[in-house]
Design a protein around this nucleic acid. Structure first.
Lengths: 109, 109
DNA sequence: TGTCTTCATGGTCATATTGCAATATGACCT
DNA sequence: AGGTCATATTGCAATATGACCATGAAGACA
């Protein structure tokens, strides 16, 4: 395997995770799951989309390895598989803060 | 504005940033820019795609507020606008590590 | 002026994503 | 078995994305 090929698969794996987090509904879900595990029915209410749509978003998160499931009777509870999302969210907040400052600078100066 | 609308735009802004990082070429670019500012011609070589394709990726990163540009003669240098990407990458690595452990557990037992 | 380099943009095609409706699956209860 | 609730999956339409080619704009330089 060439170095370039290796590099590509390296970034592909990482980009897949970022991509899974790149949708507002999925971000909302992940954020809610930081508190506690939540069933699909409750997540569907939270997101406010069709149940089938939410189910698809959940499967995207699951395929990325971000969440895991637990069965309890007819219900399925989703929970975060990783606790490290703070770093991710902090990074995003930092970018948004910088963007805001830039906008203010453009208006003010 | 209702609470739900507010929440949506909250997550939309954050998801847009994650989405901008959700492509292997863009991740490769951002990673390279952690070292130093780089011109489009060099980034084009690095990524190994058409110059127009790389230019589009760069505009995605710029629109997300992740990078900024500096003109020098006919060249345009791109540089990171934020230094916080460590937290982002650490989070990704953490997820990948967890995923690897899960795969090993599935094989092993 | 003409040409070369560097980068961005419009056009076009192939593919992926997203959303909803409809249907299937699976568990539980009677 | 039949009924009901909670999820997953499939089909389809609309839209977004990503790649290339061709072209355009701007600076450097003879």
């Amino acid at each position: 395997m060439t170095m370039k090929t290796k590099k590509i698969s390296f970034y592909e794996r990482r980009a897949a995770i970022a991509k899974a987090l790149g949708h507002p509904s999925r971000l909302m879900i992940v954020d809610a799951l930081q508190e506690r595990e939540i069933c699909v029915c409750e997540l569907t209410e939270l997101v406010g989309a069709d149940q089938s749509t939410v189910s698809r978003h959940l499967s995207v998160l699951k395929n990325a390895g971000l969440v895991d499931t637990r069965k309890e009777g007819p219900m399925i509870f989703y929970r975060l598989r990783v606790k490290c999302l703070e770093g991710f969210f902090m990074c995003i907040e930092n970018v948004l803060k910088e963007n805001l400052e830039r906008e203010e600078a453009l208006v003010g100066g």
